[in-house]
Amino acid sequence: MVQLVLITYDIAEPKRLRRIAKTLESYGERMQKSVFECGLTPDALKSLTFKLERCIDPSEDSILIQPIHQHNRGNIRWQGKPPSIASEPFWIV
Rank of each mutant, 00 (worst) to 15 (best):
E53H: 12
L40F: 06
T41G: 02
M1S: 14
A12R: 08
E37H: 09
Y9C: 01
F50D: 07
T23F: 03
K51D: 04
K81W: 10
Q3E: 08
Q79E: 09
K15V: 07
R16L: 02
P14Y: 10
G74W: 07
E53N: 10
I56N: 01
P67K: 06
W78P: 01
V35H: 01
T8A: 10
R54W: 07
L52T: 02
K33N: 11
S47Q: 13
G80P: 00
K15I: 09
D61H: 01
E25V: 02
N75M: 11
P14L: 10
R54C: 03
Q70P: 05
K46E: 11
H71A: 12
P14V: 08
G28P: 04
G39I: 04
C38K: 04
C38N: 04
S59H: 08
L52M: 14
I68Y: 01
L45S: 05
K46V: 00
C38H: 03
I76C: 05
Q32D: 06
F90R: 13
Q3F: 06
E53S: 11
K81I: 15
I63F: 03
K15T: 10
L40Y: 06
K81N: 11
R16V: 02
T49C: 03
H69K: 11
E60F: 09
Y9P: 01
R77Y: 06
T41E: 05
R18E: 11
F90N: 06
K33T: 03
E88R: 14
A21N: 07
C55E: 15
E53R: 15
S87Q: 13
T8S: 15
L6I: 08
S34Q: 04
D43V: 06
S26F: 07
Q70F: 14
E88S: 10
K15A: 08
M31V: 11
L45T: 02
L4T: 12
R73K: 10
K51M: 05
S34R: 02
D57C: 07
E25S: 11
T49S: 14
G28E: 01
P67N: 07
F36E: 02
T41H: 05
K33W: 08
V2H: 05
K15E: 08
Q79D: 07
T8D: 02
P14S: 14
E29G: 00
E60T: 06
T8L: 04
Q32E: 13
L24C: 05
W91D: 13
S59T: 13
L24F: 07
E37F: 07
C38Q: 03
N75F: 11
S87G: 14
V93S: 13
D43F: 03
I68C: 06
K33Y: 12
Q70V: 12
I76T: 11
K46F: 05
V5K: 04
D57E: 10
L52V: 02
V35C: 07
R54T: 06
T8M: 09
D10W: 00
T41I: 04
M1T: 05
E88G: 09
A21M: 03
K33H: 09
A44N: 10
R30F: 11
P82C: 13
Q70T: 08
N72E: 13
L52Y: 04
V93Q: 14
F90S: 11
S59K: 15
K22V: 07
P89T: 13
P89K: 15
Q32F: 04
